[in-house]
Simulated scan of single mutants.
Amino acid sequence: MTNLTPSVHPLLATAQALFPRLSARSDEIEGARRLPPDLAVELAREGFFRMMIPESLGGLELHPALSFQIIEALAKADGATGWCVMIGASTALTSAWLPEPAAQAVYGAPDAITGGMAAPFGRAERVEGGYRVTGRWSWVSGAQHCQWLAGGAVVTEGGKPRMVAEGIPETRLCFFPAQSVVLHDTWFASGLCGTGSLDMEVKDLFVPETYAFSLLGPRRVNAPLYGFPFGLLGMGIPAVALGIARRAIDEFIALAHQKTLVLERRQLAARPAAQEAVAVAEATVRSARAFVLEALNALYAESTRGPVSLHSRADLRLAMTHATRGAARAVDGLYEAAGGSAVFRSSPLQRCFRDVHVATQHAYVAPPTLELTGGLLLGLDVPAPTL
């Protein structure tokens, strides 16, 4: 009887094969505070930024569980690289909403990379044919290697917000050519230093109507992948965190067999506290990962049948938050069990510690998410526009 081994998707295999080269360049990436240009070009050429682009635009339109694993594999090698791919790939999800001419202009090139910030920190004054957009957005990861950038904005007329309902202003996500955007070098962070998460700014920039849209509006591409956009925009965050945590587990195991505790006359691996730490980390990471993949698979399957339910969308958000914060707890336990050697720059564990604790600060996986999903689980009538 022949044993059949499930095939690995070529892009996942490429991500896994990149591990030694990305890991070897981690110090270079961190020191540059951005992805090196040649690496960004290589990642684009391999197709990592096209994972969520519709097939009709020449994209891969991958199952979200596969995209999750690809981002996770890259983040295991280097957290900043995984993060930049996550941002570029998830931003490209918007190609399913952009009108066809704009989608072709932004995403038609096979090496296209986009980024931005969806939060409506800008102002889009309605004018003939489009909008005049002014704003400044922070946390714009990978902006230096993007050809187009997007910023969320509140729509105004005569300087006053247009309201779609009581207390709710109309918003648009507006795409700008990168050369029209001013980048401010503000990214001096404790972790994920190589993501180049700068501020971007535009002033009174005209954006044609076809380059501005709402993710709450109808999508142009009616495929299952685009049935739950807010979940997909954030699902890469736990993928990065879990990739970092997996790297921490591997590094701790290697350290535990190399490090001798002089006073105890034994290896770190023989210490019960080390054994407990790695066991807890392994269980935490694998169970959290399983929850995210379960929620992604369930939501995608539901999307093939029709609109996805609020309950399913909340389930994914809960899984994302739980996984990101669980990954940080796993890394914390390993960092502590490693002892003093983990504080030095030469230790990969300190990088994992710093990087994962920047990932936890993203609003998509912040503690208020637990209040939102907990309220829904309790049957409360909780406003949930971002689910």
Rank of each mutant, 00 (worst) to 15 (best):
A281E: 05
R172E: 02
A295G: 02
A109H: 15
A165S: 15
R247S: 08
R34M: 10
M117W: 04
D111C: 08
G115F: 03
P10Q: 07
S346D: 04
P307L: 14
V221H: 14
A342S: 15
L39P: 02
R271N: 08
S95Y: 01
L377M: 14
G379Q: 13
V154R: 06
T14W: 14
R132W: 12
L57H: 00
A328L: 12
A273K: 13
Q258D: 14
M1F: 10
P272T: 13
Y131T: 10
A80Q: 01
D250F: 03
H9A: 13
G135V: 03
G88L: 07
L372F: 06
A273R: 10
F176W: 11
L255G: 03
P385L: 03
G152R: 05
E28H: 12
G152K: 05
F206E: 00
L378E: 13
N222L: 09
L62P: 01
H257K: 10
I244C: 01
E42I: 05
T321D: 03
R246S: 12
D355S: 00
L215F: 14
A274C: 15
A143C: 14
T91P: 00
A327V: 09
G135T: 08
A290D: 09
G31T: 07
R246F: 07
M1D: 02
S303K: 04
S303C: 09
V331S: 08
H145N: 15
F344R: 12
V285P: 08
I168P: 05
P272C: 14
L66R: 12
F48R: 05
L11H: 05
I237G: 01
E72Q: 14
P368E: 04
T186K: 12
P161Q: 07
R162T: 13
I29N: 00
K203Y: 00
D332C: 12
A103D: 00
E371H: 09
I244Q: 01
P169W: 00
L93V: 03
S197C: 07
E166W: 12
L22V: 06
S214P: 00
D199Y: 04
F344V: 11
Y300M: 05
F344M: 09
S197M: 04
T5K: 10
V140Q: 09
P120R: 14
L233Q: 12
A290K: 14
N3P: 03
R317N: 10
G339R: 08
L93C: 05
G142D: 02
V140M: 08
S56Q: 14
Q104E: 11
L310Y: 04
Q258A: 15
F175G: 02
A105H: 06
F291L: 12
A290V: 13
P169Q: 04
Q267C: 14
D78H: 10
A274F: 03
L39F: 07
G115V: 02
I70F: 02
